[in-house]
Amino acid sequence: MIYYNAIIDFLGVLILIFGFAIIAENFIRTLIRHLQWQSSLLALLILAVGIYKGVYELVILSVLTVLFRGWLIPEILLKDVKKEGIWEHREISTSARHSLVIGIIVVISGFILYAGLYPLLHTWKAAIPFVLILLGLTIIILRKNAIAQISGYIVEENALLYIGVVLAPMGFLLEVGILLDIIGAVLLAVILGSEKEYGPLELEELSG
C-alpha cells in the first residue's frame, strides 16, 4: 500500500511537471516531446492502478495510452513539423512566457479549489489531475497555434483519465480512453488536412 501510494504520487508529480513544461514551451518540436513523455508516464500510472486494483480494462487502457498518445499522435505531429519548415522552430506568435506565469496562478488556485472538494472526495490523490485539467484549459485558451492547442487538449484528456483512474477506477474508462483517442485522431486529421490545402492552422481567436 505504501509503495503503491508512493508510486502514484511520484508519477503524478512528474506528470504535473511535464504539464508545466508544455505550457511554457514555444518550440513546437520540444513541446511534442514533452507531450510524449507526459502520456507515457500517464500510461505507467494507469498500469499501476490497474494491477493494484485488479481492473484489467485499465491495463488495456495503459497499453492504448502509450501506443496512441505516447507514440502514434506525437510521431505523426513530429513528422508533420519536419515537413512544414514554418513550424520547425518557434510558434509564429506565442504567448508561452505569459502562459507560465498564468499557469502558476492557475495551479495555486486549483489547489485552493480542490481543498473545497476534499470533504466530498476524501482523497488528495485527485488534486494533481484536477490542477492539470485547469492547466490544459489554460493552454487551449492562451495559445493560437493548432499544434499547441492540440497539446492543451491532450493534457486535458490525460488529466481526465488520470482523475478517472484515481477516483473511480472502472472499466468504463477504457471506452472513454478509446473515444478520446479517436477525437485526438480527428483533430490531427483536421490539422494535416488543413495544412495540405491551406498551410498551417493559426487561429486568431477561439470565439465566434
Partner: peptide, 18 residues
Amino acid sequence: RGKSHIESAWRYIIIAST
C-alpha cells in the same frame, strides 16, 4: 472543401470536447 469549414470544425471539436 473550404478553409472556413476546417476552422469551424476545429473550433467546434476543441470547444465542445473541452
